[in-house]
Design a binder for these strands. Structure first.
Lengths: 196, 196
DNA sequence: CTCTTATATTGACGATGTCAATATAAGGTC
DNA sequence: GACCTTATATTGACATCGTCAATATAAGAG
């Protein structure tokens, strides 16, 4: 009756517990080991229990992806606020936030772009994604004069996304000297935003 | 005994026939429908026949990815040869080749980066990938003076890769006017290689 | 207490990757 | 041709998966 975490028939918090278990499995073993049955096992319920909270495996993964999107958006927001004034500083902060998140939780980051596993048409998810995109667009293309440069914003996003994706898949190795601050990424951004 | 394509016990060409079937399924339904059994069905053999030619599903997908890498490398090479002299022209051609390949065969392109499905440590595959990387590096960073700029090469590759990936996943929609020539990508490259 | 609803369990089905055992073809050697 | 070896294909089985249907149990309202 009271806050007994271990009473039978999980009750109430199962949905949250399932998402926690799912994230644990994702971080540990990757998304292909993230099966409904494995999540149920880790949460200590029967293999069909999740069906009451997630209609599909896709629904479960979509909810998990939403969590990750929130987390990533929060980190990017923090980076923007922590950065000093100036477009370039802001962009370095954003790029570092992306790379740091992706390197810390590669499986979480990868899930964000797995349209085959996640329902990208989910309204809530779309809202969250659009929020992140708006942040990127605003942070990138608003120069002091106030005019926007969409090509530059998309170039920035594409470059960061591509670099991070390739780094996760170990297509690049970071520069051996001076690991911190990701000099490679810094140099790339400076190239893109060179003063003419 | 002679060139009878339809004699029982497929003989000889099964490996090639399986790869053809695999590519057909990949293009049609995506990689998650590309099961060993489906490939065997399409090739008209029993579900365990492929095991003689591919030890694993991963081995099958790796061989298929290699085919795709060859194809992509060939297209990039063609683009380089067809481009007029000058670094910028060459890079526009390369980027267009990437984007065109990815938009024409999205599932093939995606497979190239699926480290969970493809054995990226396969020696032959690594050789092919390194060949493509070398082409990109050479085409990008050799300016007239002959000195290389690795950051710029990686920036270019990252940007193209990221843009193509995001385009495939429909995170961007191309500019409605003037579809040909991909003005967005062109503008992005010009930003990166702006004369200073 | 009873009825309703939400939630969890059990059991089943078809599909998959993979393995073991078996069958068949091809090619060389006599 | 007969025989043996090897390559190749088939059949059957097993564990696992997502999903569904039927059932059981808890919680809450009246």
């Amino acid at each position: 009756m009271l806050e007994d975490t271990e009473r039978q028939y999980h009750h109430g918090r199962l949905r949250c517990a399932l998402l926690d278990a799912a994230r644990t499995i994702l971080d540990h073993d990757g998304v292909d080991h993230l099966t409904i049955r494995a999540v149920a096992r880790l949460a200590g319920v029967s293999h069909a229990a999740p069906a009451n909270h997630f209609s599909d495996r896709k629904a479960l993964l979509t909810a998990l992806a939403m969590r990750n999107y929130y987390d990533l958006t929060w980190r990017v927001t923090q980076a923007i606020h922590a950065s000093e004034d100036g477009t370039t500083d802001r962009l370095h902060g954003i790029a570092d936030a992306f790379l740091d998140y992706a390197l810390t939780y590669p499986h979480r980051f990868r899930l964000l772009w797995r349209g085959d596993l996640v329902n990208m048409k989910d309204p809530d998810l779309e809202t969250t994604m659009n929020g992140l995109y708006a942040k990127l667009l605003a942070a990138t293309s608003l120069d002091p004069s106030g005019k926007t440069n969409v090509s530059r914003a998309i170039a920035f996003w594409s470059m960061v996304h591509g670099y991070v994706a390739l780094r996760i898949d170990a297509m690049f190795t970071p520069q051996p000297d001076e690991r911190t601050g990701e000099p490679r990424l810094t140099a790339m951004i400076n190239l893109l935003f060179a003063e003419e």
